[in-house]
């Protein structure tokens, strides 16, 4: 399988404060990789570097054998989709959020796709017109996730997205992620969740900004 990411001596030290150092890593396309480690160790930073929401202060990230910097940011970010730990929803209703990925691409809103996506994460179709202020934390997280998945990305970066979800919701989310990975999406997830770690092909551990050995 070809490599989707190659990180060469990647470091992130804004203003001299080292958050990540000497990260060397190759990630195969279609892999399911989890990153764990103590809080403040640099896990989310690594994910944000992959998402181009931060820029490495040293080293280089290659994406599909091209320097990450050589690709236009909007095009890259549509392929390498980052989900936040505590997402915020836009506008007023769930539909406003699910319309956004279509608006970005200048495409008309495909309601049937949005409804199918809601069903896929166990949300009722009637949820589409619901005001975002009436959603529970778990519902918000699922709406945010399908906002990332309406146009299937090549890479899904998940930053502890199941933290705080109940067991059933967590299960629904895991199943969806697993299905996406099996259809070819590379999944890189920061997590402390045991079941998520168990489901992954590779586990990376980061401690104090450095990569520990990985386990297959």
């Amino acid at each position: 399988m070809s490599d989707i990411f190659t990180l060469k001596d990647v470091g992130y030290a804004p203003g001299g404060k080292v958050i990540l150092a000497n990260i060397n890593l190759t990630i195969a396309a279609g892999a399911y990789l989890t990153i764990s480690g103590p809080s403040g160790s640099g896990k989310s930073t690594l994910l944000r570097l992959l998402a181009t929401l931060l820029t490495p202060t040293s080293g280089m990230i290659m994406y599909q054998n091209e320097p990450q910097t050589a690709i236009s940011k909007p095009a890259y970010r549509r392929e390498v989709s980052y989900c936040f730990q505590q997402p915020s929803l836009f506008g007023e209703t769930v539909q406003d959020n699910l319309e956004f990925p279509f608006t970005l691409r200048d495409e008309p809103f495909a309601k049937d796709r949005a409804l199918a996506a809601l069903t896929e994460v166990d949300l009722a179709e009637s949820m589409l017109t619901k005001p975002i202020t009436e959603l529970s934390g778990g519902e918000k997280q699922r709406v945010a996730l399908i906002r990332n998945l309406l146009f299937t990305p090549k890479v899904l970066l998940l930053d502890e997205i199941t933290t705080g979800l109940d067991a059933e919701t967590k299960n629904t989310v895991h199943e969806l992620i697993r299905r996406k990975q099996q259809s070819g999406v590379t999944v890189i997830a920061v997590t402390h969740d045991e079941s998520e770690i168990a489901a992954a092909d590779t586990l990376l551990t980061i401690k104090a900004g450095r990569l520990e050995d990985s386990h297959e």
Partner: peptide, 16 residues
């Protein structure tokens, strides 16, 4: 800030 970051992460242009 969070909302803007999320729009960027979804592939929005600066204007979007």
């Amino acid at each position: 800030r969070q909302g803007v970051l999320e729009r960027l992460a979804l592939g929005a242009s600066l204007k979007q």
